[in-house]
Nucleic acid binder design. Structure first.
Lengths: 198, 198
DNA sequence: TTGATTTTTTAACATTTGTAAAAGGAATCG
DNA sequence: CGATTCCTTTTACAAATGTTAAAAAATCAA
């Protein structure tokens, strides 16, 4: 089966292992979350979510890599990447309910656990611990985003590239450089130049 | 009284008017929040919070303007501004509990309502609606930050400047250009050049 | 494997942005 | 008011990054 959602029995343990450090929730709460999840297997280079649709699913990357991208004057720009054991969602659409100009594309054959966001938000009323869990998850994502601004605002492209190679060497091995360039806010040509410097 | 906190009777209505569109809370909840607030009056150019301290207060700007700033290789960089009727906090410290390399400086004689964050987080257990209110406030701030990344990542300095003049003409009237330049991620000289272009 | 396609690098030149220093203006304070 | 200080602009030059096109390298599919 490819490019399909499934309701076959799914192993949710990686998801709950990911949740645990943020906030512990009851077994009952875990079951409530499981009930609003489904598995998606997406082949390399396909879109998990297409440009123009409103984000109503929060994805957990079980296997593979994905990126959020959009077009600016016809050129493809990568906003962010997500690796195994992390969440990915177009938050500006998730939290506003407006259609997103961004899409999510898969860079390797990947498996996702999709959590329905409208159903999740309904669970918040019933399970305050689920609300607290996701509050903490998004607070943490917010902090990462603030740190990223600092990087874009006043580090040179070269500094940003070298920081990336140190923090996540995996990036360079598994992601095409053309995607890394726009993620760093520069062109492919500039990135090649930086790489050639030593 | 200047540069001092006060527990004199404070008019909290602007704060609760600001909260309302995010999430309605009970009168009891409002009183609980009021009980953990205090007023700070800070004169122009002074620091509301200094570099190196851990953020334990969320500020509401009642009057005036403030900015979050830090030093990169000795040069002063503005991360963000806050005007009347908005919140300001160094979230990377607020949510991690670590000391902040950033400070908050006041650009005009200003009045703030300071909300103690440890006491606020305690209220979350007692008042789920307060937790929900702040969850929504920070989700909204998160969305703004994501949009700012897009601006820094793939708009030119000139585009960013013109976007700013359109979105918030007030910026230009009330904030020294040297602070606007670093906020846009460029030097004062570059900003002057852009401004001179027409 | 071969051939086709995609990705990455290189080159040459244009444009943008940075740096340092000086000059002009504006605000502040006694 | 005058003097000082701070802010903004201007100038000249340097460095970084963008643009376009082509070559080289890597990847993919038959």
């Amino acid at each position: 089966m490819t490019d399909q959602s499934s309701h076959f029995p799914i192993d949710y343990s990686p998801l709950f292992d990911y949740f645990d450090p943020f906030h512990r929730i009851s077994q009952e709460a875990k079951e409530a979350i499981s009930a609003i999840c489904s598995l998606s297997k997406i082949p390399k280079n396909k879109d998990l979510q297409s440009i123009g649709h409103t984000c109503r699913t929060i994805y957990f990357v079980k296997k593979g890599i994905a990126r959020i991208y959009y077009y600016k004057d016809g050129t493809d720009i990568t906003e962010s990447f997500a690796f195994e054991n992390s969440l990915i969602a177009r938050v500006e659409s998730l939290f506003t309910g407006k259609p997103s100009r961004k899409g999510i594309q898969v860079l390797e054959d990947s498996d996702f656990i999709g959590i329905s966001s409208p159903l999740l938000f309904d669970l918040y009323d019933q399970f305050p611990d689920i609300e607290r869990l996701f509050r903490k998850i998004f607070e943490s994502a917010y902090v990462e985003t603030v740190n990223r601004i600092e990087s874009l605002q006043f580090h040179s492209a070269e500094e940003r590239y070298h920081a990336l190679t140190q923090e996540s060497p995996d990036f360079l091995k598994r992601i095409p450089l053309k995607y890394i360039a726009s993620y760093l806010g520069i062109t492919q040509v500039s990135l090649s130049r930086i790489r050639a410097q030593r």
